[in-house]
């Protein structure tokens, strides 16, 4: 086994996904199969190979420090599931 249910549960926590026991079992099996498959990459020696983050080599894209009109609070909150006045509201965060 490449991955255990405990690992999957940990990852689900990071990803903020709640999994039922059945989902956990099913996902563990499918992730295990996938991780078993991707293991084939280890057949390749990649010592000294520079990783590719962008397929087309590029650098330095900038914008000028010029203010562009904002969309305004009404538009910002147009899709908010829950808004109070001009704020987004979420369940209380304990600090």
């Amino acid at each position: 086994m490449k991955i255990t249910e405990k690992d999957v549960a940990y990852v689900a926590g990071l990803a903020r996904l709640a999994l039922s026991p059945d989902e956990l079992t099913d996902l563990t099996g499918k992730m295990d199969a996938m991780l078993g498959y991707v293991d084939k990459l280890n057949q390749l020696n990649t010592d000294g190979i520079v990783p590719t983050a962008h397929a087309v080599p590029m650098a330095n894209a900038f914008r000028d420090d010029q203010v562009v009109a904002s969309i305004g609070a009404a538009a910002a909150l147009a899709n908010a599931p829950l808004g109070v006045e001009d704020y987004f509201q979420v369940p209380r965060v304990i600090e």
């Binding site: 704020y87 979420v90 209380r92 965060v93």
Partner: peptide, 10 residues
């Protein structure tokens, strides 16, 4: 974190 039940985001 005002008086309301939730927290507000700006």
């Amino acid at each position: 974190h005002g008086a309301s039940a939730g927290s507000l985001v700006d």
